[in-house]
């Protein structure tokens, strides 16, 4: 049993490293983002990528799809995009005998990896079409519920600066994403590398290193990772500390936070911590693992009030303050 567990951890880490290395062949920089994207995939979550245009959001997702041997579809969200364009629709088809029947034409959501590009450009109605798919891994269309093929991994991107004509994601929608990741602008060295790689005759291409089955196994391994109650308690305390209605909450929370994180936020913390623990070749989750996924897990779940927005206070600042003020396990 022990050997088996040890092997599982080794295999997990090895495969994870392979994916990361393969993605890094195409993607330059943002190593942490790559790790967290794969982490989210293995934790059965979805990722919201945020970054200015051109930093490689779409490229990252495409590369990941290539590496993981998953079916991939891309949805470019626009204001006129309709829910049916995402989930699919029934169309009238005529068979050989001339009989006309409705046939469900699956939308792009029926893929293992879905890139919802510039998700905040679509209307909330369309955005909400993703809700069921992301949470339930199923789609209801034409009076019929259809299961999505596992794994389902939605990566949405949004541009934080071009806010005109956009529809910010509703809180319920945001809460469905396990992580919200921010892509930083590359450094000078990274820009040189990007230029070198993309201006040649042949661009580097990622190859498949992981089968679909491997991903599902890795997901199971991650779920088996034990977490001791004191560590779990630390995650819970961190999550609760974001709530302004709680007595003796942090001063910043009291001043700037409108709503604290939901239970999904704690789930995200724990699931992300488990994968990170496995990546670190440990067979237990530590407080450090919790802290390492705190910002991507909770930053989009803490809703700030007007005062915070007017003072340009970001959730990351508040969460870091909470980490400092919350004693660990």
């Amino acid at each position: 049993m022990s050997k088996s567990a040890s092997t599982q951890i080794d295999v997990f880490q090895e495969k994870f490293a392979k994916v990361k290395d393969e993605v890094s062949k195409v993607m330059v920089g943002n190593a942490e983002v790559i790790t967290l994207v794969v982490t989210s995939l293995l934790a059965k979550g979805h990722v919201l990528l945020e970054g200015i245009p051109g930093v490689g959001k779409t490229k990252l997702v495409q590369t990941l799809a290539d590496v993981l041997d998953l079916t991939f579809s891309r949805i470019q969200f626009t204001p006129d995009l309709m829910p049916g364009d995402i989930v699919g629709t029934n169309i009238v088809t005529e068979n050989e005998s001339g009989k006309k029947t409705f046939e469900f034409q699956a939308g792009p959501i029926f893929a293992n990896m879905v890139l919802a590009d510039e998700i905040n450009r679509a209307t909330p109605k369309t955005q909400s079409a993703l809700l069921e798919a992301m949470q339930e891994n199923s789609v209801s269309a034409g009076g019929e519920t259809r299961k999505l093929d596992q794994p389902v991994f939605v990566l949405a991107t949004q541009n934080p600066i071009e806010m005109e004509g956009t529809y910010p994601l509703p809180e319920a929608q945001m809460d469905r994403f396990l992580f919200k990741l921010k892509l930083d602008f590359p450094t000078a060295a990274e820009l040189h590398t990007i230029v070198d790689r993309t201006t040649q005759k042949e661009e580097p291409k990622a190859t498949k290193v992981l089968e679909k089955g491997d991903i599902l196994k890795m997901r199971d391994v991650a779920r088996d990772m034990p977490i001791a109650k004191p560590i779990q308690d630390y995650a819970v305390r961190l999550a609760l500390a974001t709530h302004p209605e709680i007595k003796d909450c942090h001063e910043l929370v009291k001043k700037y936070v409108r709503f604290g994180v939901s239970p999904r936020g704690i789930q995200a913390l724990i699931l992300g911590s488990k994968v990170i623990a496995l990546l670190n070749k440990r067979n237990h989750v530590s407080s450090e693992d919790v802290r390492s996924v705190l910002l991507p897990s909770l930053r989009h779940r803490v809703l700030l009030n007007f005062e915070a927005e007017s003072e340009l206070v970001e959730t990351d600042f508040i969460l870091n303050a909470l980490v400092d003020s919350t004693p660990d396990a």
Partner: peptide
């Protein structure tokens, strides 16, 4: 990194994880 703490916890409260 909480190894002894986690281990002692799982000694006290048995868990069916294969990693324990």
């Amino acid at each position: 990194k909480d190894q002894v703490l986690s281990t002692y916890w799982f000694i006290r409260k048995p868990h069916n994880s294969p990693f324990i």
